[in-house]
Design a binder for these strands. Structure first.
Lengths: 174, 174
DNA sequence: TAGATCGTTTGTGTAGGGCAAACCATTTAT
DNA sequence: ATAAATGGTTTGCCCTACACAAACGATCTA
């Protein structure tokens, strides 16, 4: 390995902005979703389920980036409302294959419709084309699995992280 | 008013994706930032401070979308590390004007450098140009203040939200 | 002089979510 | 066939992020 990976990148990074925007969306989303008995997590899960297709709970937990024990409760909520179904996998009967029901798909559509209102508010600085562009970028980015992501960037990451640590840092007490 | 606002929007909305991606970034960001004694919130705050310029605590709380009482502690952390300064406003001495110090700016730059590693991992599905595009979209979107956002979309929001609520919804017990 | 405002402190409550242990059903290895 | 490993579930614990409220000092405005 070695010989300088990507250095000429522009100084500004997306991370914080992503955080910022997502926070704005989430707060508003809550107030819009609660009346339809959903929460951001539920919406997220349904979306992933639709976009990535049915999957095992483990896999789902991985793509969602949440602990599998916590996923259980989340799925319970959704299943109680018939939005998803857990079906035992025929190949390995230990596995639950989680899948979106028709009701779930409809509810998701409705939720997204409601979300359009939120986005009008939060993304008002963007034109319709720009929003579409944003959507497809996000779509493309999230299409990668967690695992894939790790493999892709693994060691270029490690080298650079180290470069940033050794320095002036006194602890932030709180 | 009335006569149907924006209806022909594509069915897919960004909200969930934004949530998804931001979660991925945040988790990884934590591990990268902790060794430099920062947390996502701190980074976010520093970023906003740089991009939006110095501001009052109230204003800052508003753009960050967090309660002003919670902001206090956050700023304490940052000030303890000399990353920001609270300066009394000359016009109104009750006000604190929060501003990024040189140390803060440097730390921010360093943090962003470290974040590049994270983004390589999370955004590996995007080309460099696409990432840049994403950045500028996010930048543009977050440039709007909370207040502005509300004004812009206010009643188009209200009308459509109502349209989505009245329906089948049984409670999601949890 | 009285009230309102900005920041601060303290205290309370809640939700999100990681982590670990123990359990059942099932699959795989020996 | 028996032992070990695995997928999902349950329970319980703990920590962090936040929102919200109340009370205070300093300051500004009426």
């Amino acid at each position: 390995m070695a010989s300088l990976p990507v250095v000429n990148q522009p100084p500004h990074r997306c991370g914080a902005l992503l955080d910022h925007l997502s926070r704005r969306v989430r707060t508003r989303a809550e107030s819009v979703l609660t009346p339809m008995n959903l929460r951001p997590r539920h919406l997220l899960t349904l979306t992933v389920l639709r976009d990535h297709g049915s999957s095992t709970q483990q896999a789902l937990a991985a793509t969602l980036g949440i602990d599998s024990t916590n996923l259980v409760g989340l799925l319970n909520d959704l299943e109680a409302d018939n939005l998803i179904e857990r079906r035992r996998s025929p190949e390995d009967r230990r596995r639950h294959v989680v899948e979106l029901t028709d009701v779930g798909a409809k509810k998701l559509a409705k939720a997204e419709f409601a979300m359009a209102a939120v986005e009008d508010e939060v993304l008002c600085a963007l034109s319709v084309e720009q929003r579409e562009q944003l959507y497809s970028l996000l779509q493309q980015a999230t299409a990668t699995t967690e695992a894939e992501a790790c493999v892709a960037a693994d060691d270029s990451v490690r080298t650079r992280v180290q470069a940033c640590v050794a320095d002036d840092d006194r602890p932030l007490q709180r």
